[in-house]
Design a binder for these strands. Structure first.
Lengths: 153, 153
DNA sequence: TTACGTGCAAAAGCTTTGCAGCTCC
DNA sequence: GGAGCTGCAAAGCTTTTGCACGTAA
């Protein structure tokens, strides 16, 4: 039972026009899990829709992250990375392990449950104390991955 | 009892030359707690040492963050921010509350103890399971600060 | 129809690099 | 003396913006 793709519902629901470029970008994001840079999204979109420009990808990813369809991450490389947040093709909530040397990024979900419990508790406490309305958190662990720690002194 | 400034010990210990520019940058970082951008560090350094250039500040902050004297953060503004990590003038370990609208950053230490306990436990578990040698973590909460949530619909 | 979206080119940051001269050890 | 550091200018990247044209609703 094929219904209208999820991403498009999101566009309509947010009063944003459902254009080919946006469908294409959502399609690519759905088929490529992982943390894609704008350039990477652009290249994949461009394979199938050569007329769609890089500027549009930038603009679209900005919109999508603003309305919460994709998450925007920054792993200290000097450029943003994006990932579908939710829906049928989206990954479950996870946290990140980033290798400081080779830049590889590993998602993990194993301990997230336990972490989330504390996070939410903390979020409530912080909201109360600092008058801050929290809607998202980012937890990154940095270190050396297995390969890189072998080749280091 | 005034002894040799802490930052300089760090330089020597890492086999990095103790130059005026580096002393100046460490001095400024020590006197200005908070998350300074490279430009901000440069301007403050430049007030007292007008001959020190922006390039040197970039290069020095890179070195200092590599050897672990300063922490490098990215709050999604498209530029890095730095902060003295430890030592006599450094702030205690803390986490961040970032306002998505106005960009203000609030440090908190209140709940960090409890968080750290879980973080360290998680770090150990992740190290074992994913063969990852973790040496640092970043926890950011994003949301709206009091002022900004008043002025939003 | 018309407000919104897009492509292209140009511009605007932030950050790094090349190179000649200077400085710490 | 020599390796390492610095300043300046130039270049490199990512990201944004201006504008004329195109397109969804």
């Amino acid at each position: 039972m094929k219904t209208k793709p999820w991403g498009q519902l999101f566009l309509e629901r947010n009063g944003i026009r459902n254009t080919q470029a946006r469908r294409a970008i959502l399609e690519v994001m759905g088929q490529n899990p992982g943390h894609l840079s704008t350039e990477e999204v652009y290249r994949k979109v461009n394979e199938r829709y050569p007329h769609i420009g890089l500027t549009t990808v930038y603009r679209t990813l900005n919109i999508l992250s603003r309305i919460g369809v994709v998450g925007r991450f920054n792993f200290g490389e000097g450029k943003a990375r994006y990932e579908l947040i939710d829906g049928p093709n989206g990954p479950p909530h996870h946290h990140h392990l980033v290798c400081s040397r080779c830049g590889s990024i590993h998602d993990y979900t194993d301990f997230v449950e336990e972490e989330l419990e504390l996070m939410h508790k903390t979020e409530r406490a912080l909201s109360d104390r600092y008058d801050f309305r929290i809607n998202k958190h980012i937890l990154h662990f940095y270190g050396l991955c297995g390969e890189c720690s072998e080749t280091s002194e």
